[in-house]
Design a binder for these strands. Structure first.
Lengths: 181, 181
DNA sequence: TAGAGTAGAGAACGACCGTTCTCCAGTGCA
DNA sequence: TGCACTGGAGAACGGTCGTTCTCTACTCTA
């Protein structure tokens, strides 16, 4: 009898998803073949296709898992804080070695409509979280405030991706003009 | 004797670049093959490769020409105006039928380092123009102001690409908080 | 009219990629 | 020990793509 898998995904799936996230994010989805992925994950091609029946399915799983982890990392960091902490989190993300912009925007640029569903889902979830923060800070129009925060987060992310330093700082000053930096 | 070509590029080149811009922008670069491009441009494969020795060269030419035209469309629209006009231009761009986000960010998401040079060049030129506007409006720190305007323009663009209406309006209110919309 | 040169259409080539298939070594059970 | 089964490694297949090559029709000149 197989050991029970509490997490819902097998060990192999986890290894595949780890490799997929690392390779897809750093080099792009189309630039990474299933064979290279198999090698990186240390899994046979047969197993790979047992876990994910197609590359498209693997890409969807990659994006869904990244959405989950990215947002929960942000939520954890911000905790009971607010907008200021969001941008502090961005600063450390932008400074991380393997930062390459937003995985979802990059995937959309590559694959277009093929991935529009997970990409929209991610941005909608981020928008909902930012709206929570807007409500928490007592914004008069939380929907507008969330729209604006999303624009600032995405704008800072793509700007930072192209090497402009201090993108998060510049965005923060738009979000909170009265904060002394 | 051939007719003299004042523009510096042959008629064929123009046709190829027109087709390239339409197809690359609407469907992505990797999704469009040289053969389909040839058909769309009504040019023989031989001629295509005489004008552009490789797809990579064609992509670079496509991005350079788009940079030129995009920026000059913006400049013309804004004229002697300022930031308000920039966002008015964005509104009509976002509303255009074939709008699909920023061609340069999409290309970078697809091809990464392969196109980083033209992408950076475009964003640098846009940044320089926004800095001009910042100086014109008497911003105390034109560099910071340009950073912020770039974040707003790019943020609004990617947000609009994913179907969020009123991205330009929300961004405008961050750029010019005192404007009554 | 004969012949040389040009350009277009598309076949051909080599490489790669997603996916499937084959073969074989290893394992657990009778 | 023999045997059915599993899983892994990687060969194979079909398709696509960027690029080059071939062949043919046409044109311009002498």
């Amino acid at each position: 009898m197989e050991p029970v898998d509490i997490s819902g995904g097998s060990d192999h799936e986890t290894r595949v998803l780890d490799a997929a996230e690392r390779l897809f994010y750093s080099r792009g989805i189309q630039a990474v073949g299933m064979d290279e992925l198999r090698t990186a994950a240390g899994v046979s091609l047969k197993r790979l296709y047992q876990s994910f029946p197609s590359k498209e399915a693997l890409v969807a799983a990659y994006l869904d898992r990244r959405d989950e982890r990215w947002l929960s990392s942000l939520r954890t960091f911000v905790g009971d804080g607010g907008v200021l902490e969001v941008f502090a989190w961005l600063v450390q993300w932008f400074g991380s070695e393997d930062f390459r912009g937003c995985a979802f925007l990059n995937a959309f640029g590559e694959l277009g409509d093929q991935v529009v569903r997970p990409v929209r889902r991610h941005k909608d979830r981020l928008h909902a979280y930012l709206r929570e923060l807007a409500v928490r800070e007592g914004a008069p129009d939380p929907d507008l405030r969330a729209d604006q925060l999303l624009i600032l987060v995405d704008g800072a992310t793509v700007t930072a991706m192209l090497g402009r330093p201090n993108a998060a700082g510049a965005a923060l000053r738009l979000a909170l003009p009265d904060v002394r930096v």
